[in-house]
Each structure stands twice: as C-alpha cells, then as structure tokens.
C-alpha cells in the first residue's frame, strides 16, 4: 500500500510520522508479527481447510478477546496497564471492534522505535502512537500485555 492509501484507511495517521517497514506479504499477519512468527498466519480458524494458518490447539478458535488473551497468556504474556516502554519487557496491544471481536495486534519490542503493526496481508508499519490506528477498521485498543524478554 502507498502511504496515502494507509492514511485513507487510518485517518489517525494523517500528518503523523510513520514508516512503511516491509512490503505486503500474505504469509503472515498482525498476530504473527506480535509473536515473532512470520512463517505462519495466526488466526483462529478451524483446522484442516486453511494451510499456513496457526493457532494453539488448547485455545478456543474464536475471535473473542477472551480467546486472544488465552493465546497470549499461553505465550507468557501478562496483562498490564501501561503502553509505555518498560526495560526488559516486550509489549503488545490488542484492538477490538464495537462488537467485541479482536481485529488487530500491535507490538512494541524493546528494540522497536515506537509501535509496529502488520496491516493484514499488507505492509508492516512503524507508528508512534496506538490511537493512530484506532477507528473504523480496527476499533479501539482494549488490552495491553507484556512479556519479559529472555536475557
């Protein structure tokens, strides 16, 4: 996507500093990016029909916040309140729509300059605020989680 196309979808980015940091790639998505697995597309779909898609077997295959919280907790994330950088911790932010279903996840790894998001099957971008992606497409940030970075 071009910068202008991204700004059209996410008006909150208009006039904000953000960078496009990868080409489009349908192999992986925002959840893959948030758990550092760009070989697979992480989403809760039934097993069998969707090759290349990954979800943990012990987590409900639902787009609910509860299912995503369970997924990330299995991956050793814990809920927290602050989106600010914290020494020794990687952070993620979960977005959900008005219907409560999860739409997106952004990550803030220790080494990242601001937040980083994979936009569906499109580009990765670096954005400096979480609310710049809030709106019609992704809804609002509903949870922040963090995981201690292994030494």
């Amino acid at each position: 996507m071009t910068r202008e196309e991204i700004e059209e979808v996410f008006p909150g980015l208009f006039g904000q500093p953000f960078e496009i940091t990868s080409p489009p790639d349908e192999t992986y998505n925002c959840v893959s990016w948030s758990v550092n697995d760009t070989a697979m597309y992480w989403w809760p779909v039934p097993p069998g029909f969707w090759p290349g898609k990954r979800w943990l077997a012990e987590v409900a295959r639902e787009e609910t916040l509860e299912a995503f919280l369970a997924l990330y907790k299995r991956l050793l994330f814990v809920e927290c309140t602050s989106a600010d950088p914290e020494p020794g911790f990687d952070k993620i932010a979960i977005y959900a729509g008005a219907d409560g279903l999860v739409t997106h996840a952004a990550r803030r790894w220790i080494e990242d300059q601001g937040w980083s998001s994979k936009l569906g099957e499109e580009n990765d971008i670096c954005h400096f605020t979480l609310d710049s992606l809030e709106g019609e497409a992704y809804g609002k940030v509903v949870r922040i989680m963090k995981r201690r970075r292994a030494a």
Binding site: M1, C30, V31, Y41, W50, L101, T103, G120, E122, A137
Partner: peptide
Amino acid sequence: ETRILSSIQ
C-alpha cells in the same frame, strides 16, 4: 476493504 484485516472470517 479487507486487505488490512487479519480476520479470515
């Protein structure tokens, strides 16, 4: 309308 969505559904 869907390319920036992760949801298969």
